[in-house]
Simulated scan of single mutants.
Amino acid sequence: MTAVLPTTDATPDTDVPEVDRASWSSRAGALLVDVLPGAAVIVTMGLLALASPADGWARWAFTGAAAVALFATAVNRLMLPATTGWTLGRALCGIAVRHSAGSGAGSDAGSDAGAAVGIGRLTLRECAHLLDTLAVFVGWLWPLWDRRRRTFADMLARTEVIGVERPARNVRRLVALVLITAAVVCAAAAGVAYLTVYKHERAVDAARAQIDEQGPRIVEQMLSYSADTLAADFARAQGLTTDAYREQLVAQQQAAQKAGIKSNEYWAVSHAVLTDPPITPDRASMLLAMQGQRGDDPQNLKFITATVRADFDRSPSGQWQVANLTVLKKPQMNPAGQ
């Protein structure tokens, strides 16, 4: 008596339905087209924003352009595939992301196999690409030897990339337009950065050099005067100040006249251009250590030491003028010889 065992048509779990799975090169090409233009704009704008003055409009403009590029990249990678079935790069390469079409118990088989992927799963897949990158980029190379040509992100999101017929529209022209636009935007931003950032930095460097050279002389001339040429010296000092500070200087000069004028001569023995507040092409500050002498009798001169801070503004004619003078250490007077 012979026992006949029933046969089954079960397929081993390792069997995978044959579909036209996308090659690694086509996937890489599609990813470059999808990501490279936006990444180029984002990186360029980010670097230019960091190099721009913190209080200038250029930093906000570059940051806004980077945000627009990031949004456009997200729309292309997440929203377009969910609505049209394509990203720009995948349409060019003739590939598409689909639900995994596995078989056997515990596999991805089901009614969704081969169906288009929704925005939620696409978002999960994009986030999961972080695993492909953190694994020393091994996940991106995994399709080269995986039987179903999946990345780690595909395995996690239960998707696979297959070859499909390209859309009827002229995708190459659209891709070329996107690439050219990204290149033009980057070039235009570099030009704007040259005009607003590089030229600004050069102007700041020039202002620093001018104040370093002219600042001590301006303060010396403003504080020095002789009893014999008082009117001319006071008029010269007033011409070295801004309109806003001139009234305060005139009041000080009038008080000195009432107290009895004695000749004063100052000179700067050391100085430093301050960086707080930041130097601008039209504004700068300086710290000065001053020495001088006071008196009209050569036999009875008094030596003076003082520390002052001078704030400078550039006039419309390009001349540096004292906008404020603050005495940090009041003048100390010693008789000659002490």
Rank of each mutant, 00 (worst) to 15 (best):
residue 4 V to A: 10
residue 9 D to L: 15
residue 13 D to V: 14
residue 15 D to Q: 10
residue 22 A to K: 00
residue 23 S to M: 01
residue 25 S to Q: 11
residue 32 L to Y: 03
residue 37 P to V: 00
residue 37 P to K: 00
residue 44 T to D: 03
residue 48 L to K: 04
residue 48 L to M: 06
residue 49 A to Q: 05
residue 49 A to H: 05
residue 51 A to I: 07
residue 56 G to Y: 10
residue 56 G to T: 02
residue 60 W to V: 12
residue 65 A to Q: 11
residue 69 A to S: 04
residue 73 T to C: 10
residue 81 P to K: 06
residue 82 A to D: 09
residue 89 G to H: 06
residue 95 I to M: 08
residue 101 A to F: 02
residue 101 A to G: 12
residue 103 S to N: 10
residue 103 S to G: 11
residue 109 A to M: 08
residue 113 A to P: 03
residue 116 A to F: 12
residue 117 V to I: 06
residue 120 G to T: 08
residue 121 R to H: 08
residue 121 R to F: 03
residue 128 A to Q: 02
residue 129 H to Y: 10
residue 131 L to P: 07
residue 134 L to W: 10
residue 140 W to E: 03
residue 143 P to V: 00
residue 146 D to E: 05
residue 146 D to W: 08
residue 157 A to E: 09
residue 158 R to T: 09
residue 160 E to Q: 11
residue 163 G to W: 07
residue 166 R to G: 08
residue 168 A to H: 13
residue 171 V to P: 05
residue 177 L to H: 05
residue 179 L to V: 14
residue 180 I to H: 01
residue 180 I to E: 00
residue 184 V to E: 03
residue 184 V to D: 02
residue 190 A to P: 04
residue 192 V to K: 06
residue 192 V to C: 09
residue 195 L to F: 14
residue 196 T to K: 14
residue 197 V to Q: 03
residue 208 R to H: 13
residue 209 A to Q: 12
residue 213 E to I: 10
residue 215 G to C: 05
residue 216 P to I: 00
residue 220 E to S: 09
residue 221 Q to K: 15
residue 224 S to H: 05
residue 229 T to I: 07
residue 231 A to N: 14
residue 232 A to K: 10
residue 234 F to D: 09
residue 235 A to C: 10
residue 238 Q to K: 12
residue 239 G to W: 02
residue 243 D to W: 02
residue 244 A to N: 09
residue 247 E to H: 11
residue 253 Q to N: 09
residue 254 Q to L: 15
residue 255 A to R: 14
residue 259 A to V: 05
residue 266 Y to W: 15
residue 270 S to F: 04
residue 273 V to I: 09
residue 274 L to V: 00
residue 278 P to Y: 10
residue 281 P to R: 02
residue 286 M to L: 13
residue 287 L to Q: 08
residue 290 M to L: 14
residue 297 D to H: 03
residue 297 D to E: 01
residue 304 I to C: 07
residue 304 I to H: 06
residue 310 A to L: 07
residue 313 D to C: 01
residue 317 S to F: 10
residue 325 L to Q: 04
residue 328 L to D: 08
